[in-house]
Nucleic acid binder design. Sequence first.
DNA 1: CCTTTTTTGTATCGATCAATACATAATTGA
DNA 2: TCAATTATGTATTGATCGATACAAAAAAGG
Lengths: 206, 206
Amino acid sequence: MPSRGRPRNFSREEALKSAMEIFWDKGFDNTSLADLTRVMGLNPPSLYAAFGSKAKLFLEAVDLYGRTDGAGIWEFLDSAPTAKEAVHDLLRRSAENFTQWPEPRGCMVVLSAPQMEGGDAAVCDDLKARRLQKQAALQHRLERGVAEGDLPQGTACDDIAAYVTSIQHGMSIHARDGASRQTLMAIADCCAAGWDAMVDASSRKI
Amino acid sequence: MPSRGRPRNFSREEALKSAMEIFWDKGFDNTSLADLTRVMGLNPPSLYAAFGSKAKLFLEAVDLYGRTDGAGIWEFLDSAPTAKEAVHDLLRRSAENFTQWPEPRGCMVVLSAPQMEGGDAAVCDDLKARRLQKQAALQHRLERGVAEGDLPQGTACDDIAAYVTSIQHGMSIHARDGASRQTLMAIADCCAAGWDAMVDASSRKI
DNA sequence: CCTTTTTTGTATCGATCAATACATAATTGA
DNA sequence: TCAATTATGTATTGATCGATACAAAAAAGG
C-alpha cells in the first residue's frame, strides 16, 4: 500500500503479461533486459523496483502463465467422469493450447526446462517443481480412477502418469517444430486408442 | 594437409568430444567460451583456428553426437523384423541411452531445441532438421511395415511417427527431471502395450 | 642457415549482459 | 507550504560475452 510517493505510470499486470509473452517465446536466457524493457515499456529501474530481478520477474511470469494461458489444459482433469476421458481431454486441450497462436508456442514450463546446468538454479528448480507437480496431479487422478473402478486394481498409475506427461512434453517440442494442430490431435488420439490395452497390460504386470 | 608450420599440440577429436559433452550438459547458450576452452584444454585462438566459431563447433559437436552416443538409439530401426518391434526397441534404447550416465542427459538434439527465437538461427535450424529427419526415418520404417504386412493398410504412419517421437522427446525431459531408467522403460512399455489397438484405430479411420 | 607457414600463449577487443547511482518529477501527510 | 516518500529517465557500472591482435615458438622447404 504505497499511498505516498509518485505513482507508477504503468500497469504492473500488463507489464508482467508482456514479460510472460517474450519469455515464453524466447526463453529465460535468450530474453535480455533490453528485450524486457522494450516490450514492457519501462526503464530498468522501474523494472527492478517492481519485480526485483530478471529471475524473479521470470518466476512471476511463469506463475501468471500457470494461472492463465497454461491453466485451461488441466481444467477438466478432476471433473472428467473417468481417468481415460481425463487423460484424453488433457492431451486434446494441450494440442489446442499449443497451437492457438500464429507462431506455435508449446508449453512455457516445458520449453524453458532443458539444460539446467549453468542456468539460474532457482528458475530451473521452480520449473522442475511445476512439471513434477502436474505429473503428480495426473497420477492422483489416475489413482482416483482405480478407486472409482474405471481403472483396474494394480494399475501402475505412476508409470502411466509419466507416459502421459512424456507425450505432452513431446507435443511442446513438436509445436515448436511446426507441427499442426491436427498432428498434435492425432498424437492425443493415438494415446487414447491404445489406452485400454495399455492399462490392462499395466494392471496385469503385478 | 598442413605439412608445414607448427603442429598443434592437442587432439582435434578429443577436444571436440569434450566440447560435445559440455554442450550436451549445459546447452548452447549456457556454455561459454571460457567453459569450452577449459574442458577442451586449449586457448581461444586455437579453438577458433580449429573450429571457426562457437556455433560451428556446436554443429560439429552435434554431428559427433549423432554418429556416436546418439546413434545406438536408432540402430535396430531398419533391421527389426516388424514395425512394432522397431518402435518398442527404439523407445527402450532411448530409455537406456538417456540414463546411462551418473547425471541423466537425455537427447542432445531434443534438449538443445526449445525457444528458437533469439538463439543462433543456424544452430536451431540444424537441430530442427535433425529431429525432423529422424521422425521421417521412423515414418518410412512404419510405411515399410505397411508394405510388408505387419501394419494394416491405411495406417496413418505420419501421425504415429509423430506420436512415437513425441514420447521419445518427452523422455528426454523426464531424464533431465530425474526419472529413473525403470520409469523410462515403463513409458516405452506403455507405448508397446497399446500399440496394436492404436494401429488398428488408425487404420480404421479412413 | 633463412624464409615461410602454422600454432601457441598472452592480453585484450568492442558488444552486450544484468543491475544501479543519481538527480528530478510527482504524489501524500503534516 | 514543506518534508517525506516513491517513481521516473538518463547515464553508467563491473562482469562477462564471443571473438582477435600480436608476437613468440615450432615445424618444413629451400
